Amino acid sequence: MDGELVYNSSLKIFSALLLKLSIPSAKTDSNFTAIMRVLLTGGSGFIAAHTLDVLLKHGHSVVTTVRTQEKANKIKEAYPDTPKDKLDFALVEDIAQPGAFDKAVISEPPFEAVLHTASPFHFNVTDVQKQLLDPAIIGTTGILKSIKASAPSVKRVVITSSFAAIVDGPKGLRPGYTYSEADWNPITHEEALKDPSSGYRGSKTFAEKAAWEFVEKEKPNFTITTMNPPLVLGPIVHYLNSLDALNTSNQRIRDVTLGKFKEEIPETGVFLWVDVRDLALAHVKAAEQEDAANKRFFVVADYFSNKGIVEAVRKNFPEYKDQLPGPDVPGGTRPEEIYKFDNSQSKSILGLQFRSFDEAITDTVKSLKAVGA
């Protein structure tokens, strides 16, 4: 299905659904087992790699999708003592293709939960519709269709969305306003096509809206839960072997260590962050806990700034002192007046205790050094 058609169809009825974040039509299972068979999509991605680690530590049996056998081999090498019945792989080369997940959702023993993290997040695109909107929208609706058709045992689906689906960018810093799970980005399809940055925000917004609409219209045997993190920082997985393959969020930490902030610290952009390990735990807990069903979670730790990254590196890694900007170098600070955030639901329902910014930056730099930073 064409991504624009999905979006337009979704928009027609979605205004009536914005307040229906707990959707009663989907069924829940009060006897949901503690140890699950889980399908994790996008297994080699930054968030998914940490989520896989949490799933295995919690004792779950995981099949993760990858685009190539080479990626599967790298993940398997990172878990040499994990048997096939606890960690296996399914090849899904292009999530934007119709029926991409039809085979992946079929398993013996059958899946009980699906964690869908696979979605593009990069700005090196020439066609926003084909490279950002379609993979996100069609990938999300496609896996939900496949689950409904071929995996009736699945009771929980957790989807990685974004703060991009919450924030109203054109309204700027909005001093005094508090963002929460009740907010939606009002971006239009036309606005999303303007540039890759807008395309990314649109892709996350339209894909999440399409997911909620699917549950409302199709009334499947599973519930959905969405994760809406802001900038995701934290250590890279140890089997990532290239600094050029970093997730977009961590590139700014890499650039600090490489001396790219020495003359001027870039503006921060998004001023909210979360550690990838806390976000990964949130995904798993959302699948494990019945009271997380049919809810959005604004998973955010606190405010930060690019200047704060520089100061954390300066404090903990004196070997980088020659790469760091001096105290008078301009840029990178956080404004005094900025929107507030409400992450209380992530704490009260998922029980999250967020890591500190200093810990996140320190552990990230250590992981970068391990691959040559």
Rank of each mutant, 00 (worst) to 15 (best):
E70G: 12
E70P: 00
K71C: 03
K71S: 14
K74M: 10
K74A: 15
I75D: 10
I75L: 09
I75V: 12
K76D: 04
E77W: 01
E77Y: 00
E77N: 13
E77G: 12
A78I: 00
Y79N: 04
P80W: 01
D81S: 14
T82A: 06
P83C: 10
P83T: 10
D85Y: 11
D85G: 01
D85L: 04
D85R: 07
K86I: 08
L87W: 10
L87G: 10
L87I: 02
L87E: 08
D88S: 15
F89Q: 07
A90H: 07
A90R: 13
L91W: 02
L91H: 02
V92D: 07
V92M: 09
V92G: 06
I95F: 05
P98S: 08
P98I: 12
G99T: 05
A100Q: 06
D102V: 03
D102F: 00
K103I: 04
A104F: 03
V105N: 07
V105K: 07
I106D: 00
P109E: 01
P109I: 08
P110R: 02
E112S: 15
E112W: 01
A113F: 00
V114D: 06
L115T: 02
T117G: 02
T117V: 14
S119E: 05
F121P: 04
H122C: 09
H122I: 04
N124C: 07
N124P: 00
T126K: 15
T126A: 13
D127K: 04
K130W: 02
K130N: 13
K130T: 05
Q131V: 10
Q131K: 07
L132W: 09
L132C: 06
L133Y: 06
L133C: 01
A136T: 05
A136W: 07
I137T: 09
I138T: 13
I138K: 13
G139P: 11
G139S: 10
G142I: 07
L144Q: 09
L144K: 08
L144C: 12
K145V: 03
K145C: 07
K145G: 00
I147D: 11
I147N: 01
K148R: 15
K148A: 14
S150K: 15
A151L: 06
S153A: 12
K155H: 13
K155Q: 12
K155F: 03
V157I: 13
V158G: 05
I159Q: 03
I159L: 15
S162T: 08
F163E: 07
F163Y: 14
F163R: 07
